[in-house]
Computed example of a mutant assay.
Amino acid sequence: MQRGGLQHDGSGDGAAPAGEAGLSGLVTPPLSRRGFVMTSLMSGLTLATTRVEAQVIRTDSDGIEAGEVRIPAQDGPMPGYRAVPEGPGPFPVVLVIEEIFGVHDYIKDICRRLAKAGYCAVAPELYARQGDLSTMTDVQQIVRDVISKTPDAQWIADLDAAAAYAGSAAKGDLGRLGVMGWCRGGRGAWLYAAHRRDLKAAVAWYGPLGGQRSDIQPRTAGDVADELNAPLLALYGGADTGIPVASVEAARDAAKSAGKSVELVVYPEAPHGFHADYRPSYRKAAAEDAWSRALAFLKANGVG
C-alpha cells in the first residue's frame, strides 16, 4: 500500500487538502447518483432504542448559536449540526462523530455542551448517503444496510469538509482542531487521528479497536494505533462486553512503542454507552468524570 493520501478511482481529484497526511489503503467507490438519502437531520432521539431514560440531558442555547446547517461536500450539501459561542471568535473546533444512530438529539446536545465550553462544535451526518437513519428501529439493520456500506474514505473526506466549513463559515479556528467520537464514532476518532496531520487532540469514547475488514473499510482502529498524528484520550468501560479492555491496552501499547501518545481511562463498572444519557447504559458518575477529563485533555493539547 502506498501511504500519504486517500486513493480514488476517478470520482474526485485524489488530492488531500493541506494539513492532512491521509491513511493508506482507503478507496472511495463512485458516489451514488441518488445523492444524499438524508437531506436534513432527524428530529428527536433515535428510534433504535428500547426506551428513553428520564435522565436525558437537555442543554439550552443561551449564549450560543446552534442549529442545523448545510456543509459543502464533494457531491452537494451535507446535513449537519453546528453549535458555537456567541461573539466574533474564532473559536477552537471540535468535530463530533456520531454513534451509528445518526445526528439525533443526543449528538446535537453534545454539540451544545461543547459550545457552552467555548468550542465551535460541528457534527456532520456521515451516513446521509447510505440510508435514512431517522426511520430505522433495528440496530442490526442499521449495521448491515448503512454502517457496513459506508466507505471509511467517504466519511473521512466528509469530516475534512466539516472542518473546512468550520474554518470558513462557522467562526472556527482550524489551528486548534480536535475530534471526539462515540461508539462507532470512537473508532472514527482513532482513524481520523491517524489521517489528519494538523489535528491537535482526539477523544475516543468506547470505540471498537477490532472488527471485520473489507475493501471499503480496510483497517481497524487497532491497525492505526501506531500512526496517530495527535494525542488521543481513550475512555472505555470495564464492563463493556463488546470491547475487551485488553484490545484497548494493546492499541495503547502499540502507540507508545511508536512514540505516540494514548491516555487510557477505564471505568471498571461502566458498560458500553456509559455516556449516552438517553439509554439504560448511562452511568452518571463515569459520564461526568469522563466529560471533565475530555475537556481538560482538549485544552491541555492545544484545543482551547
Results as ranks from 00 to 15, higher is better:
142 I>F: 10
142 I>D: 05
143 V>E: 08
143 V>Q: 11
144 R>L: 07
144 R>N: 15
145 D>H: 09
146 V>S: 07
146 V>D: 06
147 I>S: 10
147 I>G: 05
147 I>C: 09
147 I>R: 07
149 K>V: 09
149 K>M: 01
150 T>D: 01
150 T>Q: 04
151 P>A: 06
153 A>Q: 07
153 A>R: 15
155 W>K: 00
155 W>D: 05
156 I>H: 11
156 I>S: 04
157 A>Y: 01
157 A>R: 15
158 D>I: 00
158 D>N: 12
159 L>D: 09
160 D>I: 08
160 D>E: 12
161 A>T: 08
162 A>R: 10
162 A>K: 08
163 A>C: 12
164 A>I: 01
164 A>E: 13
165 Y>K: 14
165 Y>F: 15
166 A>R: 14
167 G>E: 10
167 G>H: 07
167 G>L: 08
167 G>W: 05
168 S>Y: 03
169 A>E: 11
169 A>I: 00
170 A>D: 12
171 K>V: 12
171 K>I: 13
172 G>M: 11
173 D>G: 05
174 L>G: 10
175 G>S: 15
175 G>Q: 13
177 L>W: 01
177 L>K: 05
178 G>S: 10
179 V>H: 01
179 V>F: 00
180 M>S: 13
180 M>F: 11
180 M>A: 14
180 M>P: 01
181 G>N: 03
182 W>N: 08
184 R>V: 13
185 G>V: 02
185 G>P: 02
185 G>I: 04
187 R>V: 03
187 R>D: 01
188 G>L: 04
188 G>R: 02
189 A>K: 06
190 W>M: 10
191 L>M: 14
191 L>Y: 00
192 Y>M: 04
192 Y>N: 02
193 A>Q: 01
193 A>F: 04
194 A>P: 03
194 A>R: 02
195 H>D: 13
195 H>Q: 04
196 R>Q: 05
196 R>G: 03
196 R>P: 00
197 R>G: 01
197 R>M: 08
197 R>K: 15
198 D>M: 11
198 D>S: 14
198 D>G: 03
199 L>D: 07
199 L>S: 09
199 L>C: 11
201 A>P: 06
201 A>Q: 06
201 A>M: 03
202 A>K: 00
202 A>N: 04
202 A>H: 00
203 V>D: 06
204 A>N: 13
206 Y>V: 14
207 G>A: 14
207 G>I: 15
208 P>L: 02
208 P>W: 08
209 L>H: 09
209 L>V: 15
212 Q>R: 12
212 Q>P: 02
214 S>A: 09
214 S>C: 10
216 I>E: 03
217 Q>P: 08
217 Q>F: 04
219 R>L: 15
219 R>M: 14
219 R>T: 15
219 R>N: 12
220 T>N: 15
221 A>C: 09
221 A>R: 03
223 D>K: 07
223 D>H: 04
223 D>V: 14
223 D>M: 08
225 A>S: 13
226 D>R: 13
226 D>L: 06
228 L>G: 01
229 N>C: 13
229 N>T: 07
229 N>W: 02
230 A>N: 12
231 P>C: 05
231 P>M: 02
231 P>T: 10
232 L>P: 10
232 L>F: 02
232 L>T: 14
232 L>M: 08
234 A>T: 12
234 A>M: 02
235 L>S: 09
237 G>I: 04
238 G>N: 06
240 D>K: 10
240 D>M: 06
241 T>Q: 12
241 T>G: 01
